[in-house]
Design a protein around this nucleic acid. Structure first.
Length: 761
DNA sequence: ATATGATGGACGTAG
DNA sequence: TCCATCATAT
């Protein structure tokens, strides 16, 4: 079984076969890191280490699953017993077992960022502080930063340095907010993302028997993407490996891009100090990219001061030079790149060989539009994920509350959803009652008639009875899917979306169905032993962006932020939006360290490419409806020009394969010099054969028609949206709705009792 | 209690 | 541009 070692180069071989004692693998981009990690685990198991004695921490759950399958192929089904996953998911699992020592039950809730922010908002309101000064985002970052450095609310409030910082930021009350926030989370039996790591540290600090148990369990600890761990994570691994000293960290200081969430590059730079017998292996040969790409990346990263010494090189072919495209506007950048992909498909490349990488999620829009126009399939990783959609969070809110009635964020979300006549004032009264009587909200609403009266009381009883019926199902041991299906039906969530025939309503209904399907899959998956709601929720709340489900068609262009592209590779990569102030991002640039992190981010982007790399920037970009003029990013100039090829197609470029007639319709005006000849030709519209369309002029004295007898096919004029055609009508009567396709605005659903419509002819 | 339209402010990466 | 919040009407 050792024959897989034959394919390895010398340093890879060393890394794989090093069995005992601390090991640091400095793995340059494309150096076969995943293969080394996989083989190393396989090798350890081959030499007699039991799978359940190995802990391997990865950056995404997907990466863990892939690695597990690869090891399974080499070693066999024994690989199922490996402990693998992200820091958050592995230690959430441990806290489910051990958290009772800290006062949590095994089905504690995990608060996501939205829950945390909403809780902070409530606290700011309760303290009567100005919510324009005390922004939840800022406070959360502050608290998160503290937790990642293992600073509890007690320590925070005792330390005058933090107070001073908060006072100079005009927010002296942050310490008090931190305290209340922590206490509220605790009484809600909830942990936020940072608590999962913070509490693991507390657990290992205060319960030596627990620490001891896991120290002996995990004879080997491995950490991937070590450059992106924070202090809290680092200390966990250090404690766990203190007995056996078998810690293996893999990382690349040149790819450290998560300082903003507490990652500490010093972890990797100073690792040697903590482990004097450390063995260091450097993987410097890049098997992924062409010589040109590797050399270009090296010339860029050389500008950074803070780094470990390493020389990455490639023995691959020379490859094309890196193309730099100057586009006129953000939309044109989209067009040019979509068209380049369109044309390259004839050269044997498929959609899945392309990736478009950008600095911020908001930049995806122009590319989506352009790709859609050319019928090129794409997928977007990140952005607003499935689990952040309102309808999904609503149903999940019910699931959460069924599992944990102390979960106040879930309570607030679902108490009046679907609308059951329990308004804000009633909820406020309940919350006051709860704190006055030192009881939980759940205890109050279970006996609501003892505490309050009014017309909402019956609705509240109906609500508690619903929840109680779900709790009973949960206690009877029904699986997650059975309960979720029951909830979706009996609450009326499904029905409400079913009768909503607007475009959005149908999409939401489908989303809820999809959530139910995924719960079904979770329950049916033989690898999941625990099929309870609680188990499902834990899994779901720790999904990473990269864990998004695929719809079965892999042949799609991938679009994502550079952060999301970590660890991935594509034949042809486009790095877009290379404009000063966007990338490097304006607000990042407060110190040299910040600039260096942005530069590493660019380095990561470049090194995703195997064969071809294209960089682009736009001279004009719209931001929140405002036009900005942009300059080329300094990062382009930092690459040795010997590896670059400039292409100033700019606005004179006329891509093939475009339907300009339909493309030009919703296009934004380009504020610039008169169009060039070729552009003017491209923009010419064919002379229409039909009679000229009527012109819509928005007026104040618009006289609407009676729309009682409106029927599909009618042509109408709307005061604001202009001319359109009625597509569909439903719910005749006072709530009658019409789906109308407007010439300039596209499809809209209007409530007929409000819409000001004139029937044309 | 709820539905609608007007207004004003955001500005970023992720578990 | 898009979203959350507020004021107003039902």
């Amino acid at each position: 079984m050792i024959d897989f070692l034959a394919e390895l180069n010398e340093p890879q071989h060393q890394a794989v076969t090093h069995e005992n004692g601390p090991l640091m693998i400095i793995a340059g981009a494309g150096s076969g890191k995943t293969r080394v990690l996989t083989y190393r685990i396989a090798h350890l198991m081959g030499s007699g280490v039991d799978a359940f004695n190995i802990l391997s921490l990865t950056f995404t759950n997907k990466a863990a699953e892939e690695m597990r399958h690869r090891i399974e192929k080499i070693i066999g089904s024994e690989a199922k017993n490996l402990w693998m996953g992200t820091f958050h998911s592995v230690f959430a699992k441990i806290l489910r077992f051990e958290g009772f020592r800290l006062g949590y039950t095994s089905n504690f809730t995990i608060y996501d960022t939205d829950d945390s922010k909403s809780l902070l908002k409530t606290i700011v309101k309760e303290f009567n502080l100005d919510d324009k000064t005390y922004k939840p985002n800022f406070i959360l970052n502050r608290i998160s930063g503290a937790k990642n450095n293992l600073i509890s609310w007690q320590m925070y409030n005792e330390n005058p340095v933090f107070q001073a910082e908060d006072i100079s930021a005009q927010m002296p009350e942050i310490g008090r907010i931190y305290k209340t926030y922590a206490q509220r989370c605790f009484s809600a039996n909830a942990m936020d993302f940072d608590d999962l790591l913070f509490n693991t540290n507390v657990l290992f600090r205060d319960y030596l028997d627990v620490l001891n148990k896991y120290q002996h369990k995990f004879k080997h600890v491995m950490v991937d993407e070590f450059q992106d761990t924070n202090i809290s994570q680092y200390l966990i691994t250090r404690k766990l490996s203190a007995v056996h000293q078998n810690i293996c960290v893999v990382g690349d200081d040149a790819q450290s891009i998560y300082a903003f969430r507490g990652a500490n590059i010093q972890n990797i730079l100073n690792f040697k100090k903590d482990y004097p017998d450390l063995k260091v292996v450097k993987l410097e040969q890049n098997y992924r990219s062409t010589k040109n790409i590797v050399n270009a990346a090296n010339s860029l990263i050389a500008k950074n001061k803070a780094q470990l010494e390493k020389k990455t090189f490639s023995d691959n072919e020379e490859g094309d030079r890196i193309e730099v495209i100057k586009a006129h506007s953000d939309n044109e950048e989209g067009k040019i790149i979509a068209n380049t992909i369109f044309e390259s498909k004839h050269q044997g490349l498929r959609n899945q060989d392309f990736a478009i990488l950008y600095r911020t999620n908001a930049q995806s829009r122009a590319f989506e539009e352009a790709l859609r126009k050319l019928n090129i399939k794409y997928r977007i990783i990140g952005g607003l994920s499935f689990y952040q959609r309102k309808e999904i969070k609503d149903l999940l809110g019910y699931l959460r509350y069924t599992v944990n009635q102390q979960d106040e964020e879930a309570f607030k979300r679902i108490i009046n959803l679907p609308k059951r006549g329990i308004g804000d004032s009633t909820v406020a009264k309940i919350v006051v009652m709860a704190s006055e009587n030192q009881k939980s909200v759940w205890e109050i609403i279970c006996n609501i008639k003892q505490y309050l009266e009014g017309r909402a009381m019956n609705s509240i009883e109906t609500f508690t009875n619903l929840i109680k019926s779900y709790i009973i199902m949960e206690e009877e041991g029904k699986d997650a899917h059975t309960i979720a299906m029951n909830i979706a039906k009996t609450t009326g969530i499904l029905h409400e979306l079913y009768i909503d025939k607007t475009v959005e309503g149908v999409a939401r209904h489908e989303n809820v169905q999809e959530l139910l399907n995924s719960i079904k899959q979770f329950v049916d998956n033989p690898e999941n032993e625990d099929k309870t709601l609680g188990s499902f929720l834990q899994t779901v709340s720790l999904l990473t962006n990269a864990d998004q489900e695929e719809d079965g068609d892999p042949d799609k262009v991938t679009m994502m932020t550079i952060h999301g592209a970590k660890g991935l590779e594509f034949k042809h990569v486009f790095v877009v939006g290379l404009e000063e102030n966007l990338f490097p991002s304006q607000m990042m640039l407060r110190s040299r360290e910040d600039l260096e992190e942005e530069r590493r981010l660019f380095y990561v982007a470049i090194t995703r490419a195997e064969k071809k790399l294209t960089l682009s920037y736009a001279e004009q970009r719209y931001n929140w409806g405002k036009l900005n003029f942009c300059e080329k990013s300094r990062f382009i100039d930092e690459i040795d020009p010997a590896y670059l090829k400039f292409d100033d197609r700019g606005s004179s470029y006329t891509p093939k394969g475009f339907d300009f007639e339909s493309f030009g319709r919703k296009e934004r005006p380009v504020v610039t010099a008169p169009p060039t000849r070729s552009q003017a030709i491209a923009n010419l519209k064919p002379v229409s054969q039909a009679k000229p369309a009527p012109v819509h002029v928005p007026t104040v004295d618009f006289v609407p028609s009676d729309t009682k007898n409106l029927k599909p096919g009618d042509k109408v004029e709307h005061q604001k949206f202009g001319f359109g055609e009625v597509k569909k009508l439903d719910n005749l009567g006072p709530t009658a709705k019409a789906v109308i396709h407007f010439d300039s605005e596209g499809e809209k659903t209007l409530l007929l009792s409000f819409a000001k419509l004139r029937i044309v002819e």
